[in-house]
């Protein structure tokens, strides 16, 4: 599959952060996180219906948590502890996989993995497949954040969001008997093309993660081993732009770049011209936003 490469952000010296990322592999950072947290096992407090948890950590731990890109730091003045808001998927991953935090319910009792699993399941029907998708990507050392602002379930980054733009807009689709009748995603054309257009307009590739359940029981985290993840990217193929390409698997974004980089004036049809203008205006808008 010929996908566009990562879009690294740049530092003040004009160089991109790919070298910095290579020098700090995410797998190493996550291992450091686990090692740093395992002795103190900081306690997270559930943050109520629909939410995840709030975690207070020491300053040194906050540095590692930031680098590993878990949670959102809460802005607070002059505090000894640093506070992070974690999503349900992040909470369960830190508990269940990394085993480096504890979670307390509101009556100050520590929750087991199974209790936590069923708590999140009771809060959100889609938690099993969402968590399976999240942990699948995290196991491959991708950084995963909420994708709601792009109309997707997640966005995934090759490294820390401060170093690189997200590459994929991820949509999670449940499939199979255990999920009952909850397979309403991507089942009508407007849903699919909506997701495709939305991700394309923000320079991300649409990644559909289908979670197949077979007939396993979802009431315990043990079902995670039986859930199967299928990865599939969906792209638009524009024949007008591919008549000059020899490669069979030409790309939307690649064609746009090619269009921009052409020095000779070549006669395009109407759609090609319109697309060129829209690409240029998109780039202009993007630069303006970036300047903000």
């Amino acid at each position: 599959m010929d996908l566009p490469g990562p879009r690294w952000k740049k530092g003040n010296d004009g160089k991109d952060f790919s070298a910095l990322a290579a020098a700090n592999p995410m797998s190493v950072i996550v291992a450091e996180l686990k090692a740093s947290f395992i002795s103190s096992k900081p306690v997270a407090v559930l943050s109520g219906p629909g939410g995840g948890a709030i975690l207070g950590v020491e300053p040194e731990q906050a540095v590692i948590l930031n680098r590993a890109a878990f949670g959102h730091a809460v802005e607070i003045a002059a505090a000894q502890k640093h506070w992070f808001q974690l999503s349900p998927e992040e909470v369960f991953y830190l508990c269940h996989v990394l085993n480096c935090i504890r979670v307390e319910s509101h009556d100050k009792k520590q929750m087991s993995d199974k209790q936590l699993w069923n708590h999140f399941r009771s809060m959100s029907e889609s938690f099993p497949e969402m968590y399976k998708a999240y942990s699948h990507l995290r196991f491959k050392n991708w950084v995963v954040r909420s994708g709601l602002q792009y109309g997707a379930d997640f966005v995934s980054y090759r490294h820390h969001p401060a170093l690189v733009h997200s590459e994929f807009a991820v949509v999670v689709v449940p499939e199979g008997a255990a999920f009952g009748n909850r397979c309403g995603r991507m089942e009508v054309w407007s849903d699919l093309l909506c997701a495709l257009r939305a991700s394309g307009s923000v320079a991300k590739t649409l990644l559909v993660l289908t979670i197949s359940s077979g007939s396993c029981e979802l009431s315990s985290p043990d079902c995670l081993e039986q859930l199967v993840v299928h990865e599939r990217t969906i792209t638009r193929w524009i024949p007008q732009q591919c008549r000059e390409q020899r490669s069979e698997a030409s790309r939307d974004e690649a064609n746009r770049e090619e269009l921009i980089s052409k020095k000779e004036s070549v006669e395009f049809n109407l759609w090609g011209v319109i697309l060129g203008f829209s690409v240029l205006s998109s780039l202009l808008v993007y630069k303006l936003k970036f300047r903000q």
């Binding site: 640093h82 954040r145 820390h160």
Partner: peptide
Amino acid sequence: GEEHHLNPFLDAAP
């Protein structure tokens, strides 16, 4: 825009 992130690899993050 996309989330703004302080760079925890360059800045003194906390």
